[in-house]
Write a protein that binds this DNA or RNA. Structure first.
Length: 270
DNA sequence: CTGAGATCCTGGGGGC
DNA sequence: TGCCCCCAGGATCTCA
């Protein structure tokens, strides 16, 4: 499932390949995937557009267009955003294809069809409900501390809440909590000041290390060039049920927290 | 405000 | 072996 590091990797890949290209036509194969503002026809609006840049917000990949409009893609669990050369075959579940004038194309594929590609107007505020970016200057230990203050919700559920911090998903929530030695079920308000500092550091650290390895491919994730990430090889707890904790040797356990699988170490996460 | 539960989908795993 | 059932999982919406 693409989280911040995966989307960052995708967006960086797109920056090097599609910026400057012109869209000849946009083909929608599954209507519900492509969303446009009222009165705007998705395909028609994209015809002739030029790509001016790519960026990321939370887990969303953004492709900026010369008109000032943007394409905002949420990949959810199985979404893929891949640039393909002429003659290359479609990925299974390809729902939207942007054909460029040079014969290459940007494809959005999603087997489970949970993802969406949204055309956004120049002045449209689409990210009102998204929280702070973990790499922004505003994400300080102090800001994180006040975010947790008074909250009874389990710390892991809070990390997954995109309205508070944008970009953390199940994999990196588990990994950051392990790195900070914090039990996922602890009420947010019960974290000590040193624990909050450790977790703040761990969040930034784990996301940065994952970006350096071009993301985690546990199932479907591939980058814009169709390549898998590398962070799955150094996961500490996620998906490692029964395997020894790499820090203390105690077997990794799996519990369910907020309807999500949660992997952690009983001995070193308190 | 906060949390719980349903919803959307499909591949793949488990059970028989 | 083969088939059927069931379920994970991110964001969003409804309901309590």
């Amino acid at each position: 499932m693409p989280e911040l590091p995966e989307v960052e990797t995708i967006v960086r890949g797109l920056a090097g390949t599609i910026v400057g290209k012109q869209i000849e036509r946009a083909v929608i194969r599954l209507a519900k995937i492509a969303i446009a503002p009222p009165g705007v026809a998705f395909s028609k609006a994209l015809r002739g557009e030029r790509i001016t840049g790519t960026r990321r917000r939370g887990k969303y990949a953004i492709v900026d267009l010369v008109s000032g409009r943007s394409l905002v893609t949420g990949l959810r669990m199985t979404g893929r955003l891949v640039v393909q050369k002429p003659g290359e075959e479609d990925f299974p579940g390809t729902h939207v294809v942007l054909w460029f004038t040079d014969g290459s194309r940007l494809s959005f594929a999603d087997l489970r069809t949970f993802g969406r590609m949204r055309l956004v107007e120049p002045a449209e505020v689409w990210d009102r409900d998204l929280g702070i970016e973990p790499f922004s200057s505003g994400f300080t230990p102090g800001a994180f501390m006040s975010m947790l203050a008074g909250r009874t919700t389990p710390i892991k559920a809070l990390l997954l809440d995109q309205r508070r911090i944008a970009g953390i998903g199940n994999i990196y929530a588990c990994e950051a909590l392990w790195e900070a030695r914090i039990r996922p079920s602890r009420p947010a308000k019960a974290l000590t000041k040193p624990a909050i500092r450790r977790l703040h550091l761990a969040i930034v650290d784990v996301l940065q290390r994952a970006i350096a390895l071009r993301g985690t491919s546990v199932d479907d994730y591939v980058d814009a060039a169709g390549l898998r990430g590398g962070f799955q090889n150094i996961l500490s707890v996620y998906g490692r049920l029964g395997q020894p904790c790499v820090r203390c040797g105690s077997p990794v356990v799996r519990t369910v927290l907020g309807q999500r699988g949660t992997w952690w170490c009983r001995r070193c996460q308190r």
